Amino acid sequence: MYRKEEQLLPPPEKFELPFEGKLSPNNRWVIMAELIPWDDFEEEYAKLFSAEKGAPAKLFRMALGTLIIKEKLGTSDRETIEQIRENPYLQYFIGLNCYQQEPPLESSMLVHFRKRIDGELINKINKKIVKREIDKSDKEVKKKDCLQ
């Protein structure tokens, strides 16, 4: 069963931490989170689940984000979950609203994430990111040309 819950994520500087701190908008995980078009692929990911069977699925951002963390850090599934549990930037990256002490998911979920998020979907995401960045760059060039 898949059920998307509407949630508005706070900007990094408003992400709640138990020690009164704020996330830096210049952190690599915050920057990368802003590059990835999470919502553009949520619906496609949701189609992989049955509305009648099984427990509610994790959101696409949590699934893909966890796999990205694992690959970038070169960690095992268990170590990836431990890193997420310990790091508020990683928790923000996977879409949590505030820091939590408990792991947000079991390491065994990564097996399911890998089955559902295949190379074809990763390629679509990469193409969308590149297109968006090119479009943004083109707009900046045009704006610069207009100012001269």
Rank of each mutant, 00 (worst) to 15 (best):
M1H: 12
M1D: 01
Q7A: 15
L8N: 14
L8P: 08
L9G: 14
L9N: 07
P11S: 09
P11Q: 11
P12G: 00
E13V: 15
K14N: 01
E16K: 12
E16S: 09
E16I: 14
L17E: 03
L17Q: 00
L17G: 15
P18K: 03
F19S: 12
E20Y: 11
G21M: 15
G21E: 11
K22T: 08
L23I: 05
S24G: 14
S24L: 00
P25T: 07
P25A: 09
N27V: 08
N27D: 14
N27L: 05
N27F: 02
R28P: 14
V30Y: 03
I31C: 09
I31T: 12
A33W: 01
D40L: 15
D40R: 03
E43A: 01
E43L: 07
E44G: 07
A46M: 05
K47Y: 15
K47Q: 15
L48Q: 03
F49A: 00
A51E: 06
E52K: 11
G54Q: 06
G54R: 15
A55V: 10
P56I: 06
P56V: 06
A57P: 03
K58H: 15
L59W: 15
L59M: 12
A63N: 06
A63W: 01
A63K: 01
L67E: 13
L67N: 02
I68S: 08
E71I: 08
K72S: 12
L73V: 06
L73Q: 11
G74A: 09
T75Y: 07
R78N: 07
R78D: 14
R78A: 02
T80W: 04
I81K: 00
I81A: 03
I81N: 00
E82D: 02
I84A: 01
E86A: 08
N87I: 03
P88N: 00
Y89K: 01
L90A: 04
Y92Q: 02
F93Y: 04
F93N: 02
F93L: 04
F93S: 03
F93Q: 04
I94S: 10
N97Y: 13
C98P: 09
Y99T: 01
Y99I: 02
Q101G: 07
E102H: 12
E102K: 13
P103F: 12
P104K: 00
P104N: 00
L105V: 04
E106A: 10
E106C: 05
S107C: 14
S107Q: 13
S107E: 12
S108A: 06
S108M: 10
M109I: 02
L110F: 13
F113E: 04
R114G: 11
R116F: 03
D118R: 12
G119R: 10
L121V: 09
I122S: 02
K124C: 10
K124Y: 00
N126Y: 14
N126W: 00
K127W: 03
V130M: 00
R132N: 04
R132L: 06
E133Y: 02
I134M: 09
K136F: 10
K136I: 14
D138M: 14
D138H: 07
K139N: 07
K139V: 08
E140R: 05
V141I: 10
V141T: 12
K143Q: 11
D145G: 08
L147N: 09
Q148Y: 10
